[in-house]
Amino acid sequence: MNSFPGTGYEGKNWTEFMEGIWERNPVFVMVLGMCPTLAVTVSAINSISMGLATTFVMAASCWLVSLLRHQIPKEVRIATYIVIIATFVTVVDYAIQAISLDMYEALGAYIQLIVANCLVLGRAEAHAARNAPLPAALNGLGMGLGFTLGLVMIGGVREILGAGTLLGFSLFGANFQPWVVMVLPPGGFFVMGGWLLVFALVRARRERAAVAAQET
């Protein structure tokens, strides 16, 4: 899939971008960064904010890592990546405080903990350090958006069942009975498990179709 003979650079970049959104979705396929995934997804808006914060950190740090990749000696590369990632996390931390304090309270320590998200460091090490700045940033952006997508899919379900709303809009009227378990930590595991099941089903079906196609 990686070689597109004759096609321009766009197709390549598009692949880089789309990889994180579907093919290797960080939440449902790579199953990375589970700590924020399970902790902050009590509502769709929290998921979006957390996802976008991570997206920014990923895109920016992948870009900077890629820019500096010829300067960074391999002995100190991890330290350098962490410093770069921590920088952008701090930037996001300030930005969220400036945008909305309520959101900052709701996300709590998980903003600062983006530093420790293995997804970010993993992409910096495995992808950004070996690619030019543009594809690296695009791949980081795609991964981040894929992460956001995963978070929103979990957060949306939890909000709909746990509060009867989606993005704050009431779906079932005032009489809705909230499913308390959905906004508690076990709800995160239930919904996550449910989605993983759906993805596994889709994959199994595809593989079966691929095998069938090969044989005919």
């Binding site: 079932f172 009489n175 809705f176």
Partner: peptide, 8 residues
């Protein structure tokens, strides 16, 4: 006999 999804 509450309606489904509604508070009893």
């Amino acid at each position: 006999v509450a309606w489904p999804l509604m508070i009893p």
